[in-house]
């Protein structure tokens, strides 16, 4: 076995598994029940999928200067994926795009309700003083 064959075999495996991860993301998008679980499928498997595809690309190009570009591409992916997942997840929770019956626990709900009650009380208090001022 010469090194060329080994490199070709490794990059072939990387490419197939990487493509499989992207397929998994698509399947997850279709099959998962609500926005939050879909975000898991939409954002995560392709972190690994992209890593494997970039690694295969780097192995096949046989020039060292592509590696920094690939590293930068992957690092930006690592930096931006959690932010976008968080923003969509947070907006989804706040606009109630979730199925409570599919959650075994929700420790955020109590906090949100407490904050909402506090805001309502403050609004009521403000109204009260306004009324006093009118009279």
């Amino acid at each position: 076995m010469n090194p060329e064959t080994v490199i070709d075999a490794v990059s072939a495996v990387f490419m197939v598994v990487g493509a499989l991860m992207s397929l998994g993301a698509a399947v997850g998008l279709l099959r998962f029940p609500d926005l939050m679980s879909r975000m898991h499928a939409a954002t995560k498997p392709q972190v690994l999928g992209l890593f494997l595809l970039l690694a295969a690309l780097g192995l096949q190009m046989r020039t060292w200067w592509v590696w920094p570009v690939l590293v930068v591409a992957w690092l930006f992916q690592l930096l931006t994926v959690p932010v976008s997942a968080h923003m969509v997840g947070r907006a989804g929770y706040r606009t109630k795009h979730l199925h409570p019956e599919l959650l075994s626990a929700d420790e955020l709900e109590a906090v949100v309700q407490k904050a909402a009650q506090k805001a309502a009380r403050q609004a009521a208090a403000r109204h009260g003083t306004d009324d006093d001022a009118d009279r």
Partner: peptide, 19 residues
């Protein structure tokens, strides 16, 4: 990644989550 892949293919709509 493989776990989420498995969940997507096998469990699908019945998956239970928590916050």
């Amino acid at each position: 990644s493989f776990q989420v892949l498995y969940l997507a293919v096998v469990r699908g709509p019945d998956v239970v989550s928590a916050i």
